[in-house]
Simulated assay, not measured.
Amino acid sequence: MKANVQVMATLGWADAMLNQPQHFIQVTRLVAAPLAEIRSLPGDEKNKRLFLAAEEGALQEMQVLLAVGADAGAKDTVRISGLHRAAREGHIEPVRCLVDARAVVDSRTNLQNTPLYLAPWKGHVAVVRPLAALSADPNARNQWGMTPLHRAALDGYVEATAALLAVGASPEARDDSGATPRHLARKENHQDIVELLT
């Protein structure tokens, strides 16, 4: 109970009440439960809850789970981590939280995708710069030799393409088929990206 009161006395708790009501109820339930009960959950259950919280951007819930032993670097059966999920959904603060908790910034899935590769895949430009600032490699290649810039160009995300170029992504990188990001943009008729990459 004492630990619950300490959590509720933080600025983060007050911020959640005011600015993140969609997550506040969920966090309230988690913190209201005895922390001993949460601590007693098996590690894989804590990690599954962390994955879900990362995907939903539930920062306070993530912080509680990490505090009671969830593994920031845990991965599921296809090697997708909480950091991959937070990046894919564009959640900046959860990304920072997981890296601060020692998640590997260039962690790889079974397809060799990094969190930075998944961010532009859904057009989440806001996550690109923070990941790069945390030393994510903008030229990391996946199983097919594609970089995050290939992904952004293929899917037509102009802002993500510009952000990746700004953090050092190579427009001349070739995937295993020999295609550059410009080739992929041209093939998909993303003329604005073709011009950006020219």
Rank of each mutant, 00 (worst) to 15 (best):
K2D: 15
A9L: 10
L11C: 09
L11K: 12
L11W: 11
W13N: 10
L18I: 13
Q20G: 13
P21L: 08
Q22N: 02
F24W: 08
I25V: 10
T28L: 00
V31P: 00
P34F: 02
A36K: 01
S40P: 00
L41T: 06
P42L: 03
G43H: 00
D44A: 06
E45L: 11
N47Y: 07
N47K: 03
N47Q: 07
K48D: 07
K48C: 07
L50N: 04
L50I: 11
F51P: 00
L52H: 10
A53S: 12
A54Q: 11
E55W: 10
A58E: 12
Q60Y: 15
Q60V: 13
E61F: 02
Q63I: 10
L65Q: 07
L65D: 09
L65I: 03
A67N: 10
A67D: 09
A67T: 09
A67V: 06
G69L: 08
A70G: 03
A70W: 03
D71Q: 15
A72C: 14
T77V: 14
T77I: 14
T77P: 04
V78A: 14
I80Q: 15
S81D: 13
L83G: 06
A87L: 02
E89H: 13
E89L: 11
G90M: 12
G90A: 13
H91L: 14
H91C: 09
I92F: 01
V95C: 12
C97A: 15
C97T: 15
V99K: 05
V99Y: 04
D100A: 13
D100S: 10
R108K: 15
T109I: 11
T109R: 11
L116M: 12
L116E: 04
L118I: 06
A119K: 12
A119D: 07
K122R: 14
G123I: 12
H124G: 08
V125Y: 05
V125Q: 10
V125P: 01
A126D: 11
V127M: 07
L131K: 03
A132T: 05
A133H: 02
D137W: 04
A140Q: 07
R141F: 03
R141S: 02
W144P: 04
M146R: 13
H150C: 06
A153I: 01
D155V: 09
D155E: 11
A160V: 09
T161H: 06
A162G: 06
V167H: 00
A173Q: 07
A173I: 04
R174F: 06
G178F: 01
G178A: 01
P181D: 03
L184G: 00
A185T: 02
K187H: 02
N189G: 06
Q191P: 00
I193R: 08
I193Q: 04
T198W: 11
T198D: 14
